[in-house]
Computed example of a mutant assay.
Amino acid sequence: MTNPTELLRSRYGEIPFNPEIEWNDSLTALLSHRSIRSYLSDPLPPGTLELLIAAAQSASTSSNLQTWSVVAVEDQQRKEELSKLAGNQAHIKQVPLFLVWLADLARLSYVADSRGISHDALEYLEMFVMATIDATLAAQNAAVAAESLGLGTVYIGGIRNRPQEVAEILNLPSSVYAVFGLCVGYPNPEVEAAIKPRLPQSAILHRETYKFAEQEEAIAHYNDIIKEFYTEQKMNVPGDFFPNPLFFDFSFSSEIS
């Protein structure tokens, strides 16, 4: 799907506006994103991983501190172990490449120690947040790059379900934690994945100051759109998407769509 109007209709369940800006391939790639949860076992071409990491390292990073790392997992047994820890999500086992994105303050700590410099600032909450953001920006660049190569992706938030066990499997040092995982592989053509509608822009776009005024109407409208989407996809239709009880129950295995 490359038609701008149809892409916008898929993303919002309707045509929210008529874009007057000249369209391009980057916009098509971004608006075409969908989560893939069924993969072929086909290996990725040589150099693919390194290219994805180059894209990741091209993302913005606060003060050029680059407070992130990533573990590329291709070993089947290790993928199976991580799958169990992340809520038994089958696609982690299916996919040829599973990337675990890390907020990494250990490298800065090592550099400071090796130079006899104090690194008390690494204990600040701001550094924890900064490392998490750095990892997230890098991962999103990699995901977009992967999709541009015809690969499918899905983020795995459930990797945070059992952080200590994940750290042991990946041999993570102190001051490093797994933010999320990312499946990368060729989508199974027999399992169709649709573009999931998002909230209306009136719910998330605030001009100048934050406004609650249109939230109730926007959420009600979104509930109608997402129910129709689930019905069309022959999926179980939940109650109102908002409030969704999953968001208040942290026992569930999170997965980012």
Rank of each mutant, 00 (worst) to 15 (best):
T2Y: 01
W23V: 04
S26W: 09
S26L: 15
L27K: 04
L31K: 00
R34M: 02
S38P: 01
Y39I: 08
Y39N: 00
D42G: 08
P46F: 10
P46Q: 06
G47A: 12
A55C: 13
S62Q: 09
L65D: 05
L65G: 01
T67R: 09
D75K: 12
R78C: 07
K79F: 07
K79Y: 14
Q94R: 07
P96Q: 11
A103I: 00
V111Y: 08
V111P: 00
S118E: 12
H119Q: 03
M127I: 11
F128M: 04
N141A: 12
A142F: 04
A142D: 03
A145E: 10
A146C: 14
S148P: 01
S148E: 15
L151K: 03
T153P: 00
I156P: 01
R160G: 11
N161E: 13
Q164F: 08
E165V: 10
S174P: 02
S174E: 15
V176K: 04
Y177T: 11
V179I: 02
P187N: 01
N188D: 15
A193I: 03
I195S: 03
S202N: 09
A203S: 10
I204P: 09
E208A: 05
E208M: 11
A218I: 04
Y222Q: 04
Y222D: 06
I225N: 04
K227Y: 02
E228P: 00
T231H: 14
M235N: 06
P238Y: 08
D240T: 09
F242D: 00
F248Q: 09
F252S: 13
S254K: 11
S257I: 13
